[in-house]
Amino acid sequence: MSPLGEMTLARLREFYREPAAVFWTFGFPALLALALGVAFREGATRPAAVVVTPGPRQAERVDVLSRDPRFAVSAAGEGEAAAAFREGRAVLEVGGGEAIRFRYDPIHPDAEVARMRAEAAIQQAAGRADPLAVETDPVTARGARYIEFLVPGLIGMNIMSSSMWGIGWVMVEARKRKLLKRLVATPMRRGDYFLSFVIARLVFLATEVAVIVLFGRLVFDVEVQGSLPALALVSLAGAMAFAGLGLVTASRTSSTETVSGLMNLAMLPMFVLSGVFFSTVHFPDWMQPVIHVLPLTVLNDALRAIVNQGAGPIEVAAPFLALAAWTVATFAVALRVFKWT
C-alpha cells in the first residue's frame, strides 16, 4: 500500500485502540447532550409549585388554582410555606383575605409567570369579566427549544476539541518520542504525514457528527431542518480550521504539558464566548466583532442556521469561506514553523 494509505490506517488504528480517545470523542458529547437535554426538558414542562397560606379564602383558592394543570397547588401553614420557598420547592406563595397577597421572587421568570396566571385565575373566579375574547393557536415551533439550540453547539464544540486534540496531542507525543525525527530520516514525503492526519480526521468527523445528530434525533426529536450536504461542508470546513489551529499549537514544542496548555488557552475562550451553551447576544456590543471572528462562533452560527433555520449551501457560503480562510492561515503558519526534530 502507499505510504499515505499505511499512515492513514495507522492513525485510525491508533485511535480506536485507545478507549479513552473513543469515549471523549463519541461518548462524552452524547452524555452531555443527554444530561443537559433532560434537565432543560423537565424545566419547561414541570407545573409551577404554588403554596396557599392559611386565611379565610384558603380552601377556595386552593380549589380555583387546582383547576389549572399548570399549577401544583398545596395548602400550607406560614412556617411550612416559608420553608418550601427557601428550599426551592415552591415558586409562589398565595395568601391574604379579600385582597390577594403574593410572595415571590420577581427576578425568577417562572415565578413572575406563575403570579400572573394565578392572579388571572383568582380574579376570573371572583367574577372579573374580560372585555375581549382570546384565541390562542399553540405551535411547538421547530428550532426554538433549548435542546435545539444545544445540539448544533455540541457538534461545533466537539469538532473543535477532537480536531485540536487529535492533531496537537498526537503530533507532540510523536515529537517527544523522537518518532518524528525517525520518520524524517526515511524517504517519507512530509506532506503525506500531515495528509494522513487530515484524512483520518475526516473519517472521525463523519462519525462524530452523525453520532450527535442521530442522538438528538432519537432522544430529543431534534431534526436537521436544512440541507445535509451543507451540514457536511460546514463541519468539514470547521474541522479543517481547528486541525490547523491544533497544528499551530503543536508546531514546535515537544512537551505534552505545553501543548495542552496552549490548546486550552485557544479553546477555553471559545467554549465561553462562541455560543455553545448560551447565545452570544448576552455579551456586550463592543465584544461582538471579536466574538464573531472566532472560528467556533462562525461554525456554531452556521450549524444552527442549518439545523434550526433550514439553511442550505448558499446561506452558509459565507461562514464556509470564513472557516476556509482560518484553515489556510493556520496551516500556512504551522507548516512554516513546524519542527520535526
Binding site: A10, E14, E18, A174, R177, K178, L179, K181, R182, A185
Partner: peptide
Amino acid sequence: LQETHLADRL
C-alpha cells in the same frame, strides 16, 4: 537512532 519510541498501539 539511539532512542525512538515507536507508536505504542501499533
